[in-house]
């Protein structure tokens, strides 16, 4: 159970960073934490005690104790998506810095009301 709780903790740490940190880059780091925690959780879902990697290395090999390969494949996809979002966030952060000359999210408040 401990790894699951560690995941939850990691998610919470990430969310804490997103909500309380003022620096945009730290917010993005918080996001990465959340993402990886969830990915980790997802990978753990497929875990099987005494399992072996789901790779067929020779013909006629027994497949009964493979760990579930699907979560791993899905996590890989999720990582790709995470990569895209992180890259886009960083690009936005750069442009914001160019315009506002600050990384402080509480000072970026032109849109209100």
């Amino acid at each position: 159970m401990i790894p699951y709780f560690a995941c939850i903790l990691l998610v919470l740490i990430g969310l804490y960073a997103v909500v309380t940190k003022r620096n945009i880059v730290r917010i993005i780091i918080g996001f990465s934490l959340v993402e990886y925690a969830i990915n980790l959780f997802f990978a753990l879902v497929g875990f099987k005690r005494e399992g072996i990697p789901p790779i067929i290395t020779e013909l006629g090999q027994s497949r009964s104790n493979f760990v579930d390969p699907l979560p791993q494949a899905l996590v890989l996809t999720a990582i790709v998506i995470g990569l895209a979002t992180t890259a886009l966030m960083l690009a936005l952060a750069m442009r914001i810095y160019e315009k506002y000359r600050t990384f402080d999210i509480t000072e970026i408040r032109r849109l209100r009301g």
Binding site: V11, L15, V18, I24, I27, F31, V34, E35, I38, F41, F42, V45, L70, P71, L74, A78, I81, T85, L88, M89, L92, A93, R95, I96, K99, Y100, I108, R109, R110, L111
Partner: peptide, 29 residues
């Protein structure tokens, strides 16, 4: 100015949503 600010805020909130969906899918799986 406006576009970047809006884009960033949108992205932060939107990605919280994305994370929630992913978490829900993991639990569902």
């Amino acid at each position: 100015f406006d576009e970047l600010e809006a884009g960033f805020k949108y992205m932060v909130i939107g990605e919280i949503g994305g994370a929630a969906i992913l978490l829900a899918i993991a639990l569902l799986y």
